[in-house]
Structure formats: structure tokens, C-alpha cells
Design a protein around this nucleic acid. Sequence first.
DNA 1: TTAAATTGAGATAATTTTATCTTAATTAAA
DNA 2: TTTAATTAAGATAAAATTATCTCAATTTAA
Lengths: 144, 144
Amino acid sequence: MFSKACEYGIRAVIYIAANSNEGRRVSLKAIAKHIDSPEAFTAKILQILVRHNIINSVRGINGGFEIEKQNLDVILLADIVKAIDGDQIYKRCGLGLHACSEAHPCPVHYQFVTIKNGLRTLLETTNLKTLALEVNSGLSFLKI
Amino acid sequence: MFSKACEYGIRAVIYIAANSNEGRRVSLKAIAKHIDSPEAFTAKILQILVRHNIINSVRGINGGFEIEKQNLDVILLADIVKAIDGDQIYKRCGLGLHACSEAHPCPVHYQFVTIKNGLRTLLETTNLKTLALEVNSGLSFLKI
DNA sequence: TTAAATTGAGATAATTTTATCTTAATTAAA
DNA sequence: TTTAATTAAGATAAAATTATCTCAATTTAA
């Protein structure tokens, strides 16, 4: 579904969001530990997310990553996926045709439109605040 | 969604099915041409499908690939996907957790269950006969 | 002002996936 | 029986993804 980079990215952002909601900035080391991801690779993914203005970074002692609290219910899962994997998950033909469309459909075009629309709706209607609260209340988990 | 190997595999099998339904055996060369795939790589994928008894192969002059006509409505898209990509598409956690479950869910577990069940149902209810007829009547396409 | 702790960025390495090449085995036709 | 056309299989190569390493830049605290 998503690349590993994107999976790590989503988990990292949710972890940052969960902590930002409590007013805490978190370090790369803490992120990698709590989402169980390779630290150096996670650093690269966080750099992408910073460049896309999805998270903020602060260098130096007591530095780390954070998200402005007022943005938590504005940032969507779709933003993270788009930053890391692009929009191929919505646009790419399920069977890999380059120009699949209603006018020139692959054999599963219409069925996949339904699946992909469901995924798109999910990603475009789920915000970080909701996910952060779930994690903070122990209802969902970011590792194991 | 699927690997490229799986995309080529599905398209190849539908092409073989469309021809088998008309009593024609087709060569690797013809398959690769009509589904627009790299020939040597397609050969490797077809070997996997032969080993899984999804398609039959015949060597030598006038050799090629075919599917017994009476099997066309028995073979499902799910069979092809499982042979090439395994069942990770159903089983793997959307965020990459190793042991994601209702008892220990990732933050998008329930939403992804819905998406993945939709995909599973689609793959498990679509047979080759249906797809072959659509292609043969010009309603859907296997390349471009 | 210096040192320590942090992120940023670019280079490099390892792994996986995609793709090709070469040779063997098989089949049918000439 | 020989030759040509085909698939099978294993080795190899290329490309993409995943992962690490090194050093620079920044920030804060001592």
C-alpha cells in the first residue's frame, strides 16, 4: 500500500502530534525509539516532512520536532502520504496502465476507482488531532 | 498497491484467458507485445504462474501459454495476486506494525480493515471469464 | 566562549525489485 | 533425423528503495 518510508513517516508524525498536543518537543532519538524505526532513515524522512512544512524542527540542545498545536486538526494523513509517496496511490492504475481512464479502462478500472476513492476519503478526512488523542488515551499504538 | 510483477502477471493472465476462451494458445512474445511488458521479466512471472497451476505452458514450435476453458470461471484475481505478491496486501498493517490487531491496533486499523476487506472481496469475486469477455468485447484494455 | 546536543545534507552502502542474458530442455515441422 | 521455435531455469545486471555514515550548521547551557 504505502512505502516503508511513508509508514515510518506517518507513525513519526502521529508521535510528534501526540507529544505536541501535550506541549512537548521530541527528538529524533525519541521518535525512532517510540515508533520502532531505523533512526538514520527516519531522520531522512523527517527532513522531507520539514521541507513540506508538515512538521517544524529546532536544532541544538533541547532541539527536536514539533507541530503547532493549532495545526493539529488541519494536517491530514493525505498531506503526509502526498509528501512522501506522491499521489500515485490515487492516480496509478491498479494494473499499471499508463493512461487508464473511463474512456480507456483497464479490466478492473471501475472496481479500483471505488477502492481508491475509499482510501482517498479516509486519508483526506483523518486529521492528526484525532489520531494523537487516540494514541494518548492508549486506544491505539505506534509500534510492535 | 501491487508490485509491478503482479501487475504484469494479472495483465498476462487476462490476455491468456481472453485467447484461451477463443481456443487460441499464445506465445510469450505475443503476450509481452499485447500487454506492453518487458519480455524476459514477463517470462519469469509466467514461470511462477505455471508452477502455481494457474496457467499451462507448452514448449516447442506452436508452444505457448493457455488456460483450460472450463477453469476460466474458477480462477480468481485473488489466485494470481497470492501467487506473485503473497497475502501481504490483506495481512500487512497499513502502518507497518508487526502485530497490529484489534487487541493492539495501529491508529488507522479499523479504517484499513474496511479498505482491505473491500479489496479482498473484489479480488475474490472476480473471475477470469468475466475479465476475458470484457477484453474480447473491447470494453477494457490491457495496455497503454 | 567553549562544549555538548541536536538537526541538515550529501555521500555511501545494503537490500530488494525489476530486468536481462545464456544455455538447456522440449516440441513439432521440414 | 535435423532444424527451428518455443518455454525453463539459473546467473547476472540495473534500478529503486531502504538504510547508514560523516561532517556541517545551529542552538543552548555551562
